[in-house]
C-alpha cells in the first residue's frame, strides 16, 4: 500500500456510526493517510472554498464521499456549489455520492452530474471502497 500514502480523502456525512466504520476500514487497509470528515454540506463547502487560496496540496482531497440527506446543506446543494470551484483546484478531485437512498430518481439525478464519478448505495462494500482508492492511485 505504499502508493497510497500520499492520498487525502474526505467524507461528508451526518451518520456518525457510518463515519466511524469507514474510518476503521480506511485505517485498517491503509487506504489513505489523511481523512477529512464533515457532518454536513455547508461545513465542507466552506472548507473547499477556503482551500482555493492554499498551496498545501495535501489539504486537497483526491476523493470525496458525499451523503445526500444531511441537515443545513444537503448533498445536492453541495454538488451545485462544488461544480463552480472544482476546476480551480491544482489536482483533480473524484466525487462519489454515497447514500442509503435506493430511489432511482436520486440515483439518476446524481449520475447526471459530470462532477459525480459514481453513485454508491449504502451499505458500502469494503472491496468496492478499496478499488476506488486503487483505481484513483493508478490514474
Amino acid at each position: 500500500m505504499e502508493l497510497s500514502h500520499k492520498k487525502t480523502a474526505c467524507i461528508i456525512d451526518d451518520d456518525l456510526i457510518y463515519i466511524s466504520l469507514v474510518k476503521k476500514i480506511i485505517e485498517r487497509k491503509n487506504l489513505c493517510n489523511k481523512l477529512l470528515v464533515f457532518n454536513d454540506g455547508k461545513q465542507s463547502i466552506n472548507y473547499f472554498e477556503t482551500l482555493l487560496d492554499t498551496i498545501d496540496s495535501d489539504a486537497i482531497p483526491e476523493i470525496i464521499f458525499l451523503d445526500l440527506n444531511m441537515p443545513i446543506m444537503d448533498g445536492w446543494e453541495f454538488i451545485e456549489r462544488f461544480k463552480k470551484i472544482k476546476n480551480k483546484f491544482s489536482k483533480s478531485i473524484e466525487l462519489y455520492v454515497v447514500s442509503s437512498s435506493i430511489n432511482p430518481t436520486d440515483i439518476n439525478r446524481a449520475k447526471a452530474f459530470n462532477e459525480v464519478n459514481d453513485y454508491l448505495k449504502k451499505p458500502i462494500n469494503i472491496d468496492a471502497l478499496e478499488k476506488i482508492f486503487k483505481y484513483n492511485n493508478a490514474s
Partner: peptide
C-alpha cells in the same frame, strides 16, 4: 429510508468483522 441507514451500518459492521 430510516431503517435502511441502520441496516446498512449493520451490514458494514459484519463485513468488517469478517475482514
Amino acid at each position: 429510508h430510516n431503517l435502511r441507514s441502520h441496516s446498512s451500518n449493520l451490514t458494514l459492521v459484519s463485513q468488517l468483522i469478517d475482514s
